[in-house]
């Protein structure tokens, strides 16, 4: 079961990467905010249809959900704005690497303390080592990209 969840999440990442290239292409002619709007709008339309046929929850319960849970949407939108500010100043690669570091660190902290009422997964030395390997990997990505840039100069 867990291995399927992992594979699913890897595929999620694959799709996200494709999405960012596709939105990049679209936004060159439409504008950044316009591209983001279209993503959210078409996503909402698609999910509305899916929920009609396959929805097992109750969307109306959203009005009873605690407001801090509803605030999650601001984090998604906030991510978008922060990257829009950061990319022109430090570049796509530096922004992505800083983002990933923030994502991983926050993920481990949230797990360890069980923040937001979710699963609590203690921070172990394996997790410490995993994070370290991820940071080394990012360093390699950085070097790999830099070498390529120098080659094309």
């Amino acid at each position: 079961m867990h291995i399927l969840i992992l594979l699913g999440s890897v595929i999620g990442g694959v799709l996200l990467s494709a999405q960012s290239s596709i939105n990049g292409a679209f936004s060159r002619k439409s504008g950044t905010y316009e591209a983001a709007f279209l993503t959210f709008f078409s996503g909402a339309l698609l999910l509305a249809i899916l929920i009609l046929f396959f929805g097992e929850g109750n969307i109306l319960k959203v009005f009873e959900a605690p407001k801090w849970q509803l605030a999650a949407v601001w984090f998604g939108v906030g991510y978008l704005f922060l990257t829009v500010v950061a990319v022109p100043r430090i570049g796509v690669i530096a922004t992505n690497i800083a983002t990933v570091i923030g994502q991983l660190t926050a993920g481990m902290v949230i797990d360890h303390f069980g923040f937001f009422g979710g699963l609590s997964v203690p921070f172990t030395w394996e997790r410490m080592l995993a994070i370290l390997l991820m940071f080394i990997a990012l360093r390699f990505i950085y070097i790999g990209n830099k070498k390529q840039k120098d080659d094309t100069k």
Partner: peptide, 20 residues
């Protein structure tokens, strides 16, 4: 921005349990 992504995921994981 990266922290926001993790927080977003953690919260929606919880919201998913109540509304679907």
């Amino acid at each position: 921005a990266g922290v926001s992504l993790s927080v977003e995921g953690a919260i929606y994981g919880e919201l998913g349990k109540t509304i679907g």
